[in-house]
Nucleic acid binder design. Sequence first.
DNA 1: TATTGTTATACTCTATAACTATA
DNA 2: TATAGTTATAGAGTATAACAATA
Lengths: 146, 146
Amino acid sequence: MKTGNINAKGDLATEAWGLLTGLVYPPPFLSIAREFDLRPSTFAALRALEQPRTMGELAGLLHCDNSNVTGIVDSLEDKTLAVRKPSEVDRRIKVVELSGQGETLLTRLKREVAKPPAWVKDLPEEDQEALRDILEKAVASRTPGS
Amino acid sequence: MKTGNINAKGDLATEAWGLLTGLVYPPPFLSIAREFDLRPSTFAALRALEQPRTMGELAGLLHCDNSNVTGIVDSLEDKTLAVRKPSEVDRRIKVVELSGQGETLLTRLKREVAKPPAWVKDLPEEDQEALRDILEKAVASRTPGS
DNA sequence: TATTGTTATACTCTATAACTATA
DNA sequence: TATAGTTATAGAGTATAACAATA
């Protein structure tokens, strides 16, 4: 905690946070997923498959149960966006990889998700720069789960 | 579009947005909902019930079907957080209101949601101020759906 | 007839437990 | 016996259509 940072109602941090929540929620990636006709879980799985992953790794990354991942990957396979193949070293393990089609879609998705919304793009350049610098500082000093 | 704002990969807006998404997603209100043992839809309904609402109004605010709201309000009533009563002017309409218990919970919820995360609170005071000023500008110039 | 809300139904998401095939 | 993944099953979220009560 910082000197002069009282955190009473109406302090700077609370004001800034209140403004920010109005700008970033609901998350734009939800409407992007809809545009691509992907359900949120499929969308998340696709993003997690930037590298090949085992079923269990996917479950961890998607914070869901292993049994779930079966259905999610089934649906990716149905759309020929990914394939699963048994690992050669341990045949219990299935490795899931994006297909060429899946890679292409992921590339387009990532481009969409990275696009700053209008409220950022329309800021004066010096504000964009200040914002970036402040956020860099915040990311650098971030502790897990804050 | 602004002069000097090329929006090529790596420009200021994209950099700032990339940093921001890392800081604000996943949304902290999800874990707050879990702490209060509320499912996301119940949580959202509670927040929408700051004022009494009809079932149809709730459906609009929660972006879901009318038939859904029946179940959500049922569960609020089961927890004695809200009551529904027929309107006196048109008895087709049901007005949903928070109970005393519901009001108390909503007040606590709102306090939690308004709390800035550590990455904001731990910024130097001048950065908090700059952040607030920039975000105020963004909110002021915001057009619907941006 | 039109509207508000409910019920019936179905599909998806998620989790638990039992199962399989490997190890 | 332990582990990776699947299947069976069940609960909750959401949508559509048919329905009841009211206007």
